[in-house]
Design a protein around this nucleic acid. Structure first.
Length: 1130
RNA sequence: GGGGGAGUAGCUCAACGGUCAGAGCACGGCUCUUAUACAGCCUCGGUUGGAGGUUCGAAUCCUCCCUCCCCUACCA
């Protein structure tokens, strides 16, 4: 590892010294310090330089919508992105580090509209499309800058633009898009162009930085994609009724539908259609959308359904037999029954025949009606809801439209793009569709067509952006054909069939990808199999200008690039030249139609924003300009995004576009994760009080805490994010911090420095060798997990390690760091702890980049460890360096020892004997034969639990009984119904162990490997056992033991007094102990050692009244302790 | 409506068909400690959504029902 040390050498004390560390760190302040340090020392730039030209790891960032500040839900994904980039950087991999911003589309438009107080598209046109589009760009730049700052705060290392430059560019654009501006790219190069064109060049190679999907290259590459689709005959214009958002004035594609489904209350209206040829009789029809009644054309019945004629009072109705119970109100009498087919062709009076639009639609060439409302047959009709007779309005519903088309029915389309009823609809014209239900109802009542009104609740689609309920509207939209769905399994398709169907080609790309979690694979295939053609057009302003020139002659021209457009332009090029390919300037250009030669204008539509995001494996990797570069980075090794939604959005568009252009997968591994919810398990909502803003979280809990929470989450489950969960995460991290703080405190007291001599590892005690082995194992395990993109397992392993480091290694080693310890052992302890912490923070670095570097900066950089980099993030992954420290048999043995300690603590608790009270001895039986370094390890255990001696016992010990545990998985199948008898025998200890190790019990003989022999307590002994491990303690307390216990109790009380009085760690204090004679006699022999342990001088005698004392109940009597003050310095 | 997943302690989640259903958090009790409130232990807590079935044995497999979530679907 080359030395990277460039830090200035400040004046300092003669000896190398770690900076003091508080045990209560201000993590947030520390993170800001580390950010400054990274910036000042250019750590990230140096990391990139260090790895440049080496083996690549290609990450492709899914663009974040630059439309609002970043939220904590974004932080989850971004924590993963940063984690894996850092992990692979530690393996020396070269990376692009390109963040992405999603810029175009309705998200941004809606917000800009809101800021301007606009309510309709008319407002935008009045305002001016050019100015509106410019505001959209400005908004994107505003939030790109903001999100850049927030991401940097999160610790995310990317090739970030300077946020101030982005804001400056925004301001220049606002002033005058045509003014010349010079900005410097992230690589330091300066580029000059108009403000508008510079915005269009962001993210391109000469400027570097994040990619922006509104860039010229992104847009023009989509043009080439669409031209390719057209060349293959997959691009077409559809005429259909689509879900439509009246507020946004745009169609909603299948991709966008799901988010908007919500329960909604609607009228369930039943009305009468009087039959022309059957006076006094009416059809009963049911609808939940009264406004569509103005456009009624037919009434559909099921061919084979049964229909009944019923009388209610003076009225006679027809309706489905199966619907009478729920559809009719009040008593009725059935008069007649017929199958639906016999109703076909019946004429009826429509509900709004008086409207001019209806009359016009039904009129023949002579102006007289050529069509009348009639009953038609339709196999979709059911009887679960309504009346079994379906109101058909082909201009208001997709299925109605399809039926109308097949029967050649007239179409009545009542709505304009803003959801306002068009002229020709009498009193309803000019009114918003949402406001016409009431007057329509009134009119129907007035005309005696009303039968019944109820309120029904059903799932209804809403606009995913603005929440407006959708309507269905007859429109022209542009689609990419997904190709046929064949009714055979995929593996039986012929190559020709696959070649003819894009969806199956995409599936082949899906096959080439590793999906984590695995269900993602099936989910994506399912979506592909069921998806409709991809609607790519939007009747809006801010977005990709679809390069489609739809000529009146029937020819569809698709332009594939800026050059292509320039070549084919016949007018308007001058107006466009010098502008980004956005409306309105691009609209000025007309091209010569290849069909008829006439000039033809671009369609007004903009593109679906997923086109923008789907092209990025090409646009950001220099696909056109540098094919070799592209080939090196494509396909991406890794993408990671939130699962919900992206199957039909980004994942889909990436796959579709890469399949069309290259017929190969755009990435190799996909790691998906779920959603961030509030702490109460509900979606975060400001009004519910469970929302947490990213900035607030970062500055209150700190981003390492956040990153730790995210790493510890199960990716496939939603995470419940909140302050309590953060507190819990912080507590875990503070355990690590406390170990570090302890180490630094004592290293400073001891003037220890990393270059100090220490025994070689082989010569150190088992505790040292054990923790070094553990940290070596940890590095290997975490590496394995992270290579599999399993941050959760990695975090769990780290957590378990920290636990053992703190509660076993440090707890057992604490005294070795103090003055009293032997020099060699003390040196070994410091060296071990230092090496362990250095290794640990390198393993932590990808997950907790701040805390890891904060620790590293102190114990490595400030400690002047020679020949190492000056940031943990410039170090390599440590597995190989540490592998020589592994000692698995020692780890196994230590696990047993720790278990012994657990069991003794349990026994002491049961017996009511505090750990402070020494015990004479304990007995243990060990499972299995080998326990390396047994004597030393057991001494550790004995010391920990304050027991004087340990005796090993065997199975034959009289302290325990043996038990047999039949191994059910081995014998279950073989023995079957004999099992209960065997188990009963085992429970009741009825068995006989034979010479060869086999066991006879419950009427059968089990082989030695089919049973486990356990030791079990005899009544009256205090014994604990666990997996063959048996521990027995001697609870008898001799006077000597009691005296020693009293001494420990006294020592403890004095420490308490020290703590209460707030004296410094190494202050000497004077202690007065008021004890009865018996207690004094008991304690006297221990006073010297107690004084040493507590840095005090102890005097027996009366305690003055009215001073703070501590009362202690000793076995030998009650004593009172007074801390009289600090000892006078000699 | 169709498809998938899940219902386990107050909460969040574990448990290859194997005989005592476990962790963490919360609650309560205790303990350790010159890491000074960091930590450890113990107790409490369960008809594993319900009902059947298969099996020597079911939280686990099968059937039906109930509830919730996700995906999908303009049924009027």
């Amino acid at each position: 590892m080359p030395s990277q040390s460039t830090r200035p050498r400040a004046l300092r004390a003669p000896r190398t010294m770690f900076r003091p560390v508080s045990s209560k760190p201000d993590l947030v302040a520390q993170e800001h310090e580390i950010l400054n340090l990274w910036h000042d020392r250019r750590i990230f730039a140096r990391l990139r330089a260090q790895n440049a030209g080496r083996e690549r790891w290609s990450f492709l960032d899914g663009p974040i919508t630059a439309n609002n500040p970043m939220g904590v839900h974004h932080a989850w994904g971004r924590a993963y992105k940063d984690l894996f980039q850092r992990f692979w950087a530690m393996h020396g991999r070269d990376q692009r580090y390109q963040n992405g911003f999603d810029c175009q589309g309705l998200w941004v438009e809606v917000n800009v509209e809101r800021d301007l107080g606009f309510t309709s598209k008319r407002d935008i046109e009045d305002y001016g499309i050019a100015e509106f589009v410019s505001l959209c760009k400005q908004r994107v730049l505003t939030y790109a800058a903001r999100q850049t700052e927030q991401s940097i705060r999160l610790g995310m290392w990317m090739d970030w633009n300077d946020p101030h430059e982005l804001r400056r560019l925004r301001d220049r654009l606002a002033e005058d898009p045509s003014q010349k501006v010079t900005i410097s790219g992230t690589g330091g190069t300066e580029v000059t162009d108009t403000a508008e064109m510079l915005v269009g060049r962001l993210g391109l190679p000469e400027l570097g930085g994040s990619y922006f999907t509104f860039s010229n290259e992104n847009n023009f590459l989509i043009w080439s994609f669409l031209a390719e689709c057209h060349r293959r005959g997959w691009l077409y214009k559809g005429h259909d009724t689509m879900p439509w958002c009246a507020r946004c004035g745009t169609g909603i594609s299948q991709h966008e539908m799901t988010e908007g489904y919500a329960d909604r209350q609607d009228p369930g209206l039943t009305i009468k259609f009087p039959l022309t040829e059957r006076p006094g009789e009416s059809l009963l029809v049911w609808t939940t959308t009264p406004w569509t009644l103005t456009s009624n054309v037919a009434a559909a019945v099921g061919e084979d359904l049964r229909y009944v004629k019923v009388r209610q009072g003076d009225e006679v109705y027809w309706l489905g037999r199966g619907t009478v119970k729920h559809a009719l109100e009040g008593p009725f009498q059935v008069l007649e029954e017929r199958p639906g087919r016999e109703l076909e062709g019946w004429r009826y009076a429509g509900p709004f025949d008086e409207l001019p639009a209806v009359q016009t639609a039904f009129a023949g060439s002579d102006g007289k009606p050529s069509y009348e409302h009639r009953v038609v047959v339709w196999d979709e009709v059911g009887e679960e809801e309504g009346t079994g007779i379906v109101h058909i309005a082909p201009g208001c519903g997709a299925e109605d439209f399809a039926l109308g088309k097949s029967l050649d029915l007239p179409m009545i389309a009542p709505l304009d793009e803003n959801g306002v009823v068009i002229p020709g609809f009498g009193p309803y014209s000019g009114r918003d569709v949402r406001d016409v239900a009431e007057p329509i109802l009134e009119s129907l009542r007035h005309k005696h067509r009303f039968y019944r009104l109820e309120t029904i609740t059903h799932r209804y689609p809403h606009c995913w952006r603005c929440g407006t309920p959708l309507v269905f509207r007859l429109v022209d939209e542009w689609y990419i054909s997904m190709g046929p769905v064949y009714d055979v399994p995929r593996d039986q398709l012929t190559p020709e069939q696959v070649d003819a169907s894009l969806r199956y080609q995409i599936m082949e790309s899906v096959d080439g990808i590793k999906w984590i979690p695995g269900f993602g694979y099936e989910r994506e295939l399912d979506w592909l199999l069921n998806m409709h053609d991809w609607m790519i057009s939007k009747k809006r302003y801010w977005g990709l200008a679809l390069p489609i020139y739809d000529c009146a002659c029937g020819t569809i021209n698709v332009v594939g690039s800026r050059e292509d457009l320039a070549e084919r332009a016949v007018e308007g090029w001058d107006q466009f030249d010098g502008h980004t390919p956005h409306r309105p300037y691009v609209d000025a250009v007309k091209i010569r139609c290849t069909g008829c030669g006439e000039p033809v204008a671009r369609i007004a539509d903009v593109g679906n924003p997923w086109l923008d995001a789907g092209i990025v494996p090409f646009s950001t990797m220099h696909y056109r300009s540098e094919p070799d570069f592209w080939r090196q980075w494509f396909p991406a090794d890794f993408v990671t995004e939130s699962f919900p939604g992206q199957f039909r959005n980004w994942f889909y568009s990436l796959l579709a576009m890469s399949t069309v252009l290259r017929r190969e997968p755009p990435f190799r591994t996909l790691f998906g994760y779920a959603l961030v919810f509030g702490e109460d398990g509900r979606q975060m909502h400001k009004s519910w009080g469970n929302a947490i803003e990213f900035d607030e979280a970062a500055e209150r809990m700190g981003v390492d805490v956040m990153r730790w929470m995210f790493a510890n989450a199960r990716p496939e489950d939603n995470i419940n994010f909140g302050w309590h969960a953060a507190d819990e995460a912080r507590r875990r991290l503070l355990v690590l911090w406390n170990v570090y703080s302890f180490f630094v405190t004592y290293a400073r007291l001891a003037d220890w420095e990393p270059t100090a001599k220490a025994p070689t590892v082989a010569k150190r005690g088992p505790l040292d060798r054990w923790i070094l082995s553990r940290v070596a194992g940890l590095a290997a395990e975490v590496e394995e997990d992270l290579r599999e993109y399993d941050a959760l397992d990695a975090a769990r392993a780290i957590d378990a390690f920290i636990e053992e480091l703190s509660t076993w290694y440090l707890r057992r080693s604490r005294k070795r760091f103090s003055r009293g310890a032997g020099a060699a052992d003390r040196a070994a302890a410091f060296a071990t702890m230092h090496a362990t912490l250095v290794a640990l923070v390198r393993v932590l670095a990808p997950i907790l980049p701040f805390m890891a570097d904060a620790v590293y900066q102190n114990i490595v950089v400030a400690g002047e460890v020679p020949n190492v980099p000056d940031s943990v993030h410039l170090t390599g992954w440590p597995t190989a360096e540490l592998s020589g420290l592994r000692d698995r048999s020692l780890e196994t043995a230590m696990a047993v020892v720790m278990r012994v300690v657990d069991l003794v603590r349990t026994l002491r608790g049961q017996a009511g004997i505090k750990v402070r009270q020494p015990l004479a001895r304990m007995w243990i039986a060990l499972p299995g034969a080998e326990l390396v370094e047994r004597e030393t390890l057991l001494a550790l255990a004995a010391d920990e639990v304050n027991v004087k001696s340990i005796e090993l016992i065997g199975d034959e010990s009289e302290l325990v009984d043996r038990r047999v545990k039949p191994l059910l998985p081995k014998i279950g199948k073989k023995l079957g119904s004999a099992i209960p008898a065997v188990m009963a025998a085992a429970r009741e200890n009825r068995f006989e162990i034979l010479a060869d190790g086999s066991v006879r019990m419950g009427g059968v003989t089990l082989a030695a490997d089919e049973v486990e022999i356990l030791a079990t307590p005899r009544p009256g002994t205090v014994v604990a056992h666990d997996e063959g491990l048996v521990v027995v303690i001697d609870t008898e307390l001799t006077p000597e033991l009691r005296a020693e216990g009293d001494a420990r109790e006294l020592q403890r009380a004095i420490q308490d007094a020290r703590k209460e009085s707030g004296v410094e760690l190494d202050d000497e204090v004077r202690i007065k102990v008021d004890a009865p004679a018996a207690a004094r006699t008991t304690l006297e022999p221990f006073i010297r050692s107690v004084q040493a342990e507590t840095r005090s001088t102890i005097v027996f005698g009366a305690v003055p009244p009215s001073v703070e004392t501590i009362a202690v109940e000793l076995d030998s009597g009650a004593v009172t302790i007074w801390l009289a003050g600090k000892a006078v310095a000699p």
